[in-house]
Amino acid sequence: MTHTIELPIRNVSCEACEKVIGRILRKFSHAKIESVSADAQTLTFTCEEKDTDTIKAKLREYNYLDEEKDSRPHFSYIAHQVIANTPGFEAEHQLLTHTLGLAGLLFLTLGLSYMAWFSQNELFIKIWPVLALVPLGIALNAGSLIHVRHLRHHFNCTNGMMAGMTIGMMSGFMSGAILGATNGMFVGSIIGMAIGMSASAYAVRKAGIMGILEGLMAGLMAGTMGAMLSVMMLSDNLMAFLYLLFGACTLILGGMSYFIVKEIGPIQDERKNVGFIPLAIISVLVLLIFLALIVWGPKSSLAWGSL
């Protein structure tokens, strides 16, 4: 079966280069050049699927294959490898299934909590859309945090700063916004800040002081900002804002995981296994603390009354 692929190339500057590439491909049946772009440094060609690796090896031998770019695959490629549990991406696949499983478990816990404690509470009915975001936020942040933790030893300064900032900012923003909406500015800011700062420091610990400092600053800023925005929107479209915010945070956390795999590669070290039980216990505890704060925390009724 033939397929068409695009490869990043280098050292291709003239007609002679294209001719040499053409000669390489002519040695394989059904292989032909579709296009060569000297400006974009890309080569698109059609060949039999079984010949792809040999052709790449030949291009490598002639120093035309851009190894650095070729080893940094696109988002769709990585996503497919992770979902399909391709060899080399087993740890990421496990992390993804654990995150989804964790989200399910946390939603179940939320449902049970409702039946046990909140079903008689009129205020709960008013704020249930906010509560539904809590399990999602915890599962997303836990999955991202573990991904960063597994690869933090391989971070350089820039990777560490980016990962620390993303974890600090997303966890701080999400928790600050939820608690700000249900408990007001003070509680939202303090807890959002504490969660953002501690999550980032834990995620990038041992990855360099710059990553830790960046995470601490991001956690501080996002924790207070999330709470502030929620309080400012109590008389506006707060619920729509919270859902948009969580959607944006989900995209950013997914982007961060892609960035890590692209920059560092899949999890390869001896700590491949991601234990679900400790992750589940800690996450359920965090959820229960959040629920307790939302229901019984200071200023909660004031915030709820304005929703």
Binding site: N11, S13, C14, A16, C17, K19
Partner: peptide
């Protein structure tokens, strides 16, 4: 003849 590809060719 100005590059490595010319040499190969």
């Amino acid at each position: 003849m100005h590059c490595s590809s010319c040499e190969i060719l």
